[in-house]
Structure formats: C-alpha cells, structure tokens
Design a protein around this nucleic acid. Structure first.
Length: 298
DNA sequence: CCATCCGGTCCGCGTTATAC
DNA sequence: GTATAACGCGGACCGGATGG
C-alpha cells in the first residue's frame, strides 16, 4: 500500500532542509504538524528516517534511499505542472489524429503545415486507416479525434457515443486516359462495356468502385477486374494517366487534364458521387487547447 | 444500471500549549 | 529545534435516495 503523498512531500522537504522547522516554514504549516507527519511516515514504513540529535535531524541511509526514489518523481511532477500552466498561454503538445489514407496524406498534411506556422509548439501523430480501425482507437483514448469517410460499420455497435460533423465534400469521378477511353469506350458507353474494363482501386474490397457503380446505375457490378490496388490517390492518378485503366479520383485533382482532354471522366448524366469527410469526436470529451485551436481552424 | 447528490459519521490533520 | 498531549474542524467515506 502506497503511503499518503502529502507525508512523502513533508519528508522530501525536511530532507532538503535537514530541518523540520525550515520545512514547516516552506510549507506554511506548523513545526508540530511536520514532526507528526514524519513520525507517522516512519511508523508506516517501520523504518527510522532521521536520528534525533539535540535540535537537529540527521538522515539515516534509509532516508537517503527514499529521497532518491522521490526526487525524480517530484521533479517530473513539477515539470508536468509547469507544462499544464504553460499550455494555458497557448496550444502545445502532441495531437493524435486518425484519417482515411487519401485524406490524411493530402488534405490533412496541408492543414497540419498551415497550423504549425501559427502554433509551432504543437506536434502531430497521424494514424492512417479505415474508420473501422480508427474508431476503436478513438474510443480507447489513443486518438484525439479522427476524420472518417464511411460511417459507421456494424463493428461500432458497442462503442461509446460519438459526435459527427461534416467538414468536406468532394466530387469523385471515374476517369481514364484519353487513349484508354477511345480504345475501350469510344462511342459505346454502356454499363456492360464499362464493367468489362480494367480498374484501379484503393482496397481489395473495391469499396470505392462499388460505391461509384451503385451510385450511378443503382445496382452492383460484381467481378470488376482490378489490375491495380493501391492506397494512394497519387498512384491511382499516375496509373490513370499511364493508361492502365479506370480509377476513381477527386475531380479537382484532374481538372486541368480534363480541360486539356488528356484525361476523360465517365459521365452518366447523374451528379457525381460525393466523398463526404466527417470529423468524429468522442461525445462529451473536453478538447485540450491544441485540439481546440486546430478544430477552430476549420 | 450507473452516476450524482445528500446527510450523517468518523478519522486524521494541523493547531496551540507545553515540556525537554 | 523537536516531541507530545489535547482538541477542533474539514474532508473522506458510506448508505440511501434520486434521476437519466
């Protein structure tokens, strides 16, 4: 059983001054209180900590050992409390953020860069991955907040309540190079012709592709041929330009190529599929200053 | 079921006074 | 300067009530 911390603090102060009276003055309590506290600690530990000479306290070797144990702890504690105090004057510390791979490596990194210009004492740890993996980590307090595109899976049943606020919508287009378009789809843009093409996707499950097809044709197209699977928008983009097949990318990333005609987007007449990114936080969790400042930047 | 509030009880801390 | 006795007060703890 750990002894009362206040008694250890009294001991620590006596040891530093080698005097109960001086410790009492420093701690703004009576000399009597210090003496009683020390006596109690010695009885608890069943160890003599000071030899009482006339008007003098001489530490025993046990006292020296105890001081060595307590001293780093007190130093840490004082440092920690100073840190908490400093935090009031401005955001600092580490922000742990979860995000989908594409959003995290593109938009989030830009946000972090802009934020750090204003608040250089804030550092970032970004975990990239699927919301199904990030939500439990948010619930366990390992992440301060996350960004999520799909929300939520059935696996999130027994997780604590979250607050979800939309932060971004971007149009997603199914695109390929102009060469690929004229060779494989020229003049016959039917669902069947489309489904027979080569595809580029972000995950083994082809969630992005399947969503696109469901959105535009109201039915699923099983057995799409994925010739490349990679968790990187940049890679998909390069593969599209290289004529490898059809891939889904945010429209604004290929705006120039679409205008120039080097990249073609598959248009069905329906509005484009939207990628909705939401901010997900633990309900009722107070935001630390760094977190608050970051979220206010939105 | 869990968190919170409330009233009552009791223990221990810190005080003063005093002895050494 | 330190230790001890006596004492008052605050806070910790407990059981029960209440509310979401």
């Amino acid at each position: 059983m750990l002894t009362d911390f206040n008694r250890l603090k009294v001991f620590y102060t006596i040891y530093r001054h080698k005097s109960a009276a001086a410790a009492a003055r420093e701690m703004y309590i009576s000399q009597s209180a210090v003496s009683q506290s020390l006596g109690k600690l010695e009885r608890e530990l069943k160890t003599q900590l000071f030899v009482r000479l006339h008007k003098k306290l001489v530490p025993t070797s046990a006292a020296g050992r105890l001081y060595e144990i307590i001293e780093p702890f007190v130093r840490n504690l004082e440092g920690g409390l100073a840190w908490l105090e400093a935090e009031k004057s401005g955001p600092r510390g580490v922000l742990r953020i979860g995000a989908p791979v594409e959003f995290g490596s593109r938009n989030l990194v830009e946000l972090v860069a802009a934020f750090r210009k204003k608040h250089p004492a804030v550092f970032f740890e970004v975990a990239l991955g699927h919301p199904d993996m990030l939500l439990p980590r948010l619930a366990a307090g390992e992440l301060d907040f996350i960004f999520a595109d799909i929300f939520p899976g059935r696996g999130a049943r027994n997780l604590p309540p979250f607050t979800v606020s939309p932060v971004l919508k971007e149009k997603l287009v199914l695109a390929c190079s102009a060469g690929y378009y004229s060779a494989r789809l020229g003049g016959k843009l039917t669902p069947a012709a489309l489904a027979g093409c080569e595809f580029l996707d972000y995950s083994q499950g082809q969630t992005a592709l399947l969503n696109w097809f469901r959105h535009h044709y109201d039915k699923s197209f099983p057995g799409l041929k994925a010739v490349l699977t990679v968790e990187s928008v940049q890679a998909i983009l390069n593969a599209i330009k290289g004529g490898l097949g059809l891939g889904i990318v945010p429209e604004y990333l290929v705006e120039a190529e679409l205008k120039a005609g080097s990249v073609k987007a598959v248009r069905t007449g329906r509005p484009e599929l939207l990628n909705r990114i939401s901010l997900v936080r633990l309900k009722g969790k107070a935001a630390a200053p760094a977190e608050k400042a970051f979220l206010e930047n939105f």
